[in-house]
Amino acid sequence: MPVKDVLIYPHPLLKKICAPVEHLGEEIDSLIQDLIDTMVAAGHSVGVAAPQIGAPRRVVVVDVSHSKLGRDDNHGLLVMVNPEILEREGRKVSREGCMSVPDYTGNVVRAESVVVQFLDREGKQRVIRARGFEAVALQHEIDHLDGLLFLDRVSSLKTDLFRRKKR
């Protein structure tokens, strides 16, 4: 299965809202395989969204089990078709970067824990609760399906302490 090139902003597909998958057939299955292969080939990557490899469909793959930050709390390899975040809880700041936006990182606030509903690779309806880094990765990848980059969510300049409210 081919490893795909990851599209780099300003590629227009990265700002598109992706279409839901209607039918889980061969075409989507090979898209899923491409996503997994691309994620693995990228080495350090913990997730890829379909638009990042040029397919504007609502499919993401995430696997934080090999990363230092995620290895203690994860669901292994997650393949998500038409994922939807049902619940968000808590607040967590991470310094995020993105393969599609090289050489830039920013502080992003995301939910610390999310409940996500999705179809798995076999087309089974599933609901999981993810926490910590896995939750952050899922929110980042699912954002791609709505044309959102972490740049749209940067919450603060490097040090945000001094720009808070005045008494």
Binding site: H44, S45, V46, G47, S67, K68, L69, S94, R95, E96, G97, C98, M99, T105, F133, V136, A137, H140, E141, F150
Partner: peptide, 15 residues
Amino acid sequence: LQVDIAIRSITPVEL
């Protein structure tokens, strides 16, 4: 110095 000091590692995550 009688001050408080805290250090933490920041790991930028490429997603």
